[in-house]
């Protein structure tokens, strides 16, 4: 066991068994995940809904038992040393977990005491967190009166109050307004400076890009690719060009034409648009435009962009993350 590893999983698998009219049905939510998270990192799970991100996090938090595989968290065995893990890990689930019938302060003090912290220290600690997360103006109000952003801060403070070495954040900024998101991003980065290791899940490319040292793209219960944001982006191997046309028929015709004449790394058609990845996009773009125009395919719009994590996701899963989100 490497003491630098905060999380280490081998072939982690989670199967849900449900009975529908007496018939057993199995759903494999996590299909053999090998994962290493090093101390001091912000590690991101990026993937669409139902990819297995949250399930993996729940297993790591001791909230779910793995169906098979080896899991070590902070060097402790997940099955046999649950209490050690619980004492040193913070988990903030997607719904949060603040008790809305209590005030923020009552929530924080109780949470600290649940970790065995005495009442006086718990109170002091709660006040510190209230200041640090700029919650002092509403901390003594019932949590049922909080705005989305205020409640989210309380949720995260609840996960932090016992000073865990590892913090698990499940979609920390989903559903928040832009200001609250930006605020939480700074706060999460500050936690990293304090030496806390963070494993977060997200559906947002920009969030993963901005916060994470390492990103694992997870889809259908498996890690498809993993690396630093830069590594992943350069693995796409080129720039992305999007052409849009009047109709999808023209887009399909254009696809055939482009495939015949140009050496492309990746090409995908969605509705009226063609996404293609190509080396040296800036120089190639004028030629492509001339080619399309010369064949009577009128290009309505064009964008050229450097590789983004969207493109990474597209390359490895064959579909766009945003598209996937819309379907749900």
């Amino acid at each position: 066991m490497n003491s630098d590893y905060v999380i280490e999983t081998k072939r982690l698998q989670k199967v849900f068994v449900s009975k529908v009219r007496g018939e057993k049905r199995q759903v494999e939510a996590v299909k053999g995940v090998d994962l290493i998270v090093k101390r001091g990192q912000i590690f991101g799970f990026l993937g669409p809904n139902g990819a297995g991100k949250s399930t993996t996090q729940k297993v790591l938090s001791t909230l779910m038992r793995p169906s098979s595989g080896e899991v070590k968290v902070l060097g402790y065995d997940l099955v046999r040393q649950q209490d050690k893990i619980r004492q040193n890990v913070g988990f903030v689930s997607q719904v949060g977990g603040a008790d809305l019938a209590s005030t923020g302060m009552e929530n924080l003090v109780l949470q600290a005491q649940l970790f065995g912290i005495d009442a006086k220290t718990a109170k002091k600690s709660a006040e510190e967190f209230s200041q640090r997360f700029q919650m002092t103006s509403y901390i003594d109000r019932s949590a049922s009166t909080y705005s989305g952003g205020q409640k989210r801060r309380l949720d995260i403070a609840l996960g932090m109050i016992h000073h865990p070495q590892l913090l698990l954040l499940d979609e920390p900024t989903t559903g928040l307004d832009p200001q609250s998101r930006a605020y939480l991003w700074t706060e999460i980065q500050a936690l990293k400076t304090d030496g806390v290791t963070i494993l977060l899940t997200t559906q947002y490319m920009d969030e993963a890009d901005k916060l994470c040292d390492t990103i694992a793209i997870i889809d259908h219960g498996q890690i498809i690719v993993q690396g630093t944001p830069d590594e992943l982006k350069s693995s796409v191997g080129g720039d992305t060009i999007v052409f849009s046309f009047v109709s999808s028929e023209i887009a399909c015709k254009a696809e055939v034409l482009l495939n015949e004449h140009v050496k492309l790394e990746l090409l995908q058609v969605t509705d009226n648009s063609i996404y293609l990845t190509i080396k040296d996009g800036e120089r190639t773009l004028p030629d492509l435009l001339r080619l399309l125009d010369g064949s009577g395919m009128h290009v309505q719009g064009v964008t050229l962009s450097r590789p983004s994590l969207d493109d990474v996701f597209l390359k490895y899963t064959g579909r766009s993350l945003r598209e996937d989100g819309q379907k749900q």
């Binding site: 689930s93 603040a98 008790d99 649940l114």
Partner: peptide, 16 residues
């Protein structure tokens, strides 16, 4: 209510 708002799960990941 507590289950739905995640309070019980929050307790369950503490050593309580």
């Amino acid at each position: 209510d507590d289950i739905r708002s995640g309070v019980i799960h929050r307790y369950l990941v503490t050593p309580v």
